[in-house]
Design a protein around this nucleic acid. Structure first.
Length: 460
RNA sequence: GGCGCUAUAGCCAAGCGGUAAGGCAAGGGUCUGCAAAACCCUCAUUCCCCGGUUCAAAUCCGGGUGGCGCCUCCA
């Protein structure tokens, strides 16, 4: 099994620390707002990674954080806490906001067949561990106190910037960040913040009332559940330059050695070849897709078409293609399920091997999906093929045992009457009239489908 | 200014040194009164451009050009 390690910039053979076991940490959501489909893509990547590891016989300890405190609005160290901002806008307490969006998030990932990590760690439930972490950093000389918090001294940590090729010398102070005079270096970041009185979320600490810096939570919680060294750390590419760089600095400064063996990063989803953003109103959610008639599985299938380490360009046209393809795949599988042809055992064996090779080669889901199509399109219709694909779906997670979304007639008297009239005309071979009625329905947004079981219709 | 990713048919997209996966759309066919749906067939002598390395390059190297992202919270 091979993975592309961001740190070494190479595809490496996966060597677990403990035989047959993998320790994973995945950066989870900040629960101050609804997650969009770009976020979801990253968790799909996380899920495919899980499934591949499990398929290769690994047991997992997988930790994902829920950041319910500590992210700040304007930059890493200044500005209003996002949780507080969300709370103020919805007139709820930060805890209520966090709970509400955590529930929504869990509902969304479940609808996408994303399997839950073994451990979901909330930042607010691990404050003592974070304080202890900060204390050790201070004892070892990496932390220093200013009037508003405890900062990490990046110049004391030799490897700073190694994940993203950052050159500390090259970073210009104040380029786009407000200068903080008390910081020794512009890249220094807060590991503990002293809380102003009005700050709702705050905890007692050796430095007075305050709250944790936003990078410290991952270092502290990963260490608590996964130990001093663990196998894989994942997250979105946007986390490479700051968040993960800082995590590395904190953890290695504390431990004296690297904490993570392999770093995997999921690329962004683009919309019409550009960034998703609130201002462009293209930061779609699963709910937005549902309104247009796309299910979570349609979206998962769409994402399965691209490799996690490449950008994926979302367009409605492409999503429509994915929906059509997915539905056809389901109906083709139903044919195999009831098929009685002599199974092409050789082809099935080859496809199984190719499928495994594809997913083990840096989680190549798109290639694996191509192999599924090859099997499904074989002329022999056989339950053996259906069974083989179901086995593959344990990794794909596309609910391929489902039946295609049916075109169901709804109850609508006006439509039913017109259909009855059309059937009458057809019976009398008055096709001019029957076609006229069909066109009339079409102009109403009703599409007909004449089947052996009668007339079905749907809204287009 | 610094760092990184990327350029493959109308669209989405694999491939990462051995002679272009897959899906959608499109065209043709089967079926149908005709359609729709479904199924079958066809669909890149060529991978942004220019050089180079090699028996062999979409794949490696150098140089262009274009796109995107990060360097501020961000999946």
């Amino acid at each position: 099994m091979k993975f592309y390690n961001t740190l070494s910039r190479k595809k490496e053979e996966f060597k677990p620390i403990k035989e047959g076991h993998a320790g994973l940490y995945c950066c989870g959501p900040t629960v101050y707002g609804t997650a969009h489909i770009g976020n979801m893509r990253t968790y799909l990547f996380m899920d495919w990674l899980r499934r591949v590891l499990i398929s290769q016989g690994y047991s997992l300890t997988h930790v994902m954080n829920i950041t319910d405190v500590g992210h700040l609005v304007s930059d890493g160290d200044d500005g209003e806490d996002k949780m507080l901002k969300g709370a103020r806008e919805l007139k709820k307490t930060p805890w209520e906001i966090a709970e509400m969006y955590t529930d929504l998030f869990m509902r969304d990932i479940a609808s996408l067949n994303i399997t839950s990590p073994e451990i979901i760690a909330k930042a607010t439930e691990h404050i003592p561990q974070m304080i202890e972490f900060v204390q050790v950093l201070c004892e070892k000389g990496y932390g220093y106190e200013t009037s508003d918090g405890i900062y990490f001294d990046v110049q004391k940590f030799e490897g700073y910037g190694k994940l993203s090729n950052l050159d500390l010398e090259g970073q210009q102070a104040g380029a786009r960040v407000e200068v903080n005079d008390e910081k020794r270096h512009p890249a220094d970041f807060a590991i503990w913040k002293k809380a102003p009185k009005e700050h709702i979320m705050q905890w007692e600490s050796p430095w007075g009332m305050g709250y944790p810096g936003w990078h410290i939570e991952c270092s502290a919680m990963a260490r608590q559940y996964l130990g001093d060294v663990f196998d894989i750390h994942t997250g979105g590419v946007d986390h490479i330059p700051v968040h993960h760089e800082n995590e590395i600095a904190q953890s290695e400064a504390m431990l004296g050695h690297p904490a993570v063996n392999t770093w995997l990063h999921g690329e962004f989803m683009l919309v019409n070849n550009g960034k998703m953003s609130k201002s462009l109103k293209n930061n779609y959610t699963l709910e937005d897709l549902a309104k247009e008639g796309y299910s979570p599985m349609h979206f998962r299938f769409f994402c399965a078409n691209g490799h996690y380490s490449n950008k994926l360009n979302f367009t409605w046209e492409a999503l429509a293609g994915a929906k059509t393809a997915y539905e056809r795949l389901l109906s083709a599988l139903q044919v195999h399920k009831n098929g009685t042809d002599v199974p092409p055992l050789d082809e099935i064996t080859v496809a199984k091997a190719e499928f495994t090779a594809a997913v083990c080669d840096d989680i190549n889901i798109p290639k694996a999906l191509g192999i599924v199509w090859g099997l499904v399109r074989l002329p022999q219709k056989s339950e053996e093929i259906y069974d083989a694909v179901q086995e593959m779906d344990k990794i794909l997670g596309l609910s391929l045992n489902a039946e295609p979304t049916e075109v169901k007639p709804e109850a609508d008297e006006a439509v039913d009457n017109l259909i009855a009239k059309r059937q009458e005309a057809r019976k009398n071979k008055d096709f001019a009239e029957s076609d006229r009625i069909r066109d009339e329905l079409k102009s109403m947004g009703i599409v007909l489908e004449d089947t052996k079981e009668g007339v079905k219709w749907k809204r287009s």
